[in-house]
């Protein structure tokens, strides 16, 4: 995808551009939006394919149910709203009308994580990975940059199963070298032997910067972009735990049940090693500028370096 030379693009933009392309290539793709059409970047699709766009009002539960009905009638729906509402407000609808029936319903939850910023706790969803990965048949993807979001969206449309896409609001830097993106296959972003940092979403580049800092201290950190917390790429994780002997996870999400928990579930059964789980712990978000919030909640490169050093000492 050509991003017009921009070095910062939000993952919701990547999603919106993919919808526009899917509109051309797949006549069954339909988009439902719960009164947040521009915010979720469904407006490009709406302008071009108005006959396949459903304005659903602020009625998320009905939107998820209607998406299920459309999937049962052969459509490929994308139901879009903020992550807090898509995964929380409509959870039972996702559980029964979507996951239990194992339908090709794609749910896009934008505004994931504290990087939503000023809107504060109600709009900074921190629980989507937990709430969605507990559901059988559900795939959960947390793209790391706009290109990954673009590819995830296109791949989700092809999967005859439900997919939840966790997307961010903020324009974020693009990966310089994209190692390729396939739902379900973790990407090794940086090779390393002393410890592994498993990361997803906006935290990927922060972890890569931390790995550079660690290299200056002669610590070789492997960085794995686990953009698909479910189904989880066990092989890559077990191999990393075996070869590096320590695993640090970093996410802009609740640690309880989140991506880090998913990694811990795999390793505790297969290759237990010292671990540290970084993320949101028992707290709601607060209003503030995204960068100040990352600092406030200790989710920056500096804290990743600190935790990595402490973790290595436990090996």
């Amino acid at each position: 995808m050509d991003w017009g030379g921009k070095d910062k693009v939000s993952t919701r933009d990547g999603f919106g551009k993919a919808l526009l392309e899917l509109g051309e290539t797949n006549k069954d793709v339909v988009v439902l939006s719960a009164d947040l059409t521009e915010s979720v970047r469904a407006h490009w699709f709406k302008e071009k394919f108005p006959e396949r766009f459903i304005s659903h009002g602020v009625a998320e539960q009905d939107m998820i149910g209607a998406a299920a009905g459309m999937a049962l009638s052969g459509k490929v729906p994308f139901a879009c709203t903020f992550g807090a509402f898509a995964s929380g407000r409509a959870w039972d609808q996702v559980r029964i009308s979507v996951a239990y029936m194992d339908l090709n319903v794609n749910i896009a939850g934008t505004h994931g994580g504290i990087s939503v910023g000023a809107d504060g706790a109600t709009h900074q969803s921190l629980e989507e990975v937990t709430l969605m990965r507990v559901l059988p048949n559900m795939t959960v993807v947390v793209p790391g940059d706009a290109e990954e979001a673009f590819l995830a969206t296109k791949q989700a449309a092809e999967m005859p199963h439900p997919v939840y896409l966790r997307l961010g609001r903020e324009a974020a830097p693009m990966f310089k070298n994209n190692p390729g993106f396939t739902i379900g296959k973790a990407s090794v972003m940086v090779p390393g032997d002393d410890l592994t940092i498993v990361v997803c979403g906006h935290m990927v580049l922060k972890a890569m910067a931390a790995a550079e800092e660690l290299a200056k201290k002669n610590i070789s950190a492997r960085v794995i972009n686990l953009h698909t917390p479910k189904p989880i790429d066990k092989e890559t994780l077990i191999k990393a735990a075996t070869e590096t002997g320590a695993v640090l996870t970093v996410e802009e999400h609740a640690v309880a049940g989140g991506m880090g928990s998913a990694v811990a579930e795999v390793l505790v059964e297969n290759r237990p090693v010292p671990m540290k789980l970084m993320g949101m712990k028992g707290k709601f978000g607060v209003s503030g500028e995204p960068d100040k919030l990352y600092e406030f909640f200790h989710l920056t490169e500096r804290y990743i370096v600190e935790e990595a050093e402490k973790l290595i000492a436990r090996k």
């Binding site: 149910g65 459309m70 009308s97």
Partner: peptide
């Protein structure tokens, strides 16, 4: 949940 699903089916059809 059934009426919402019916709405989706009616829209799709």
């Amino acid at each position: 949940q059934g009426l919402s699903i019916s709405v989706g089916m009616a829209l799709a059809d």
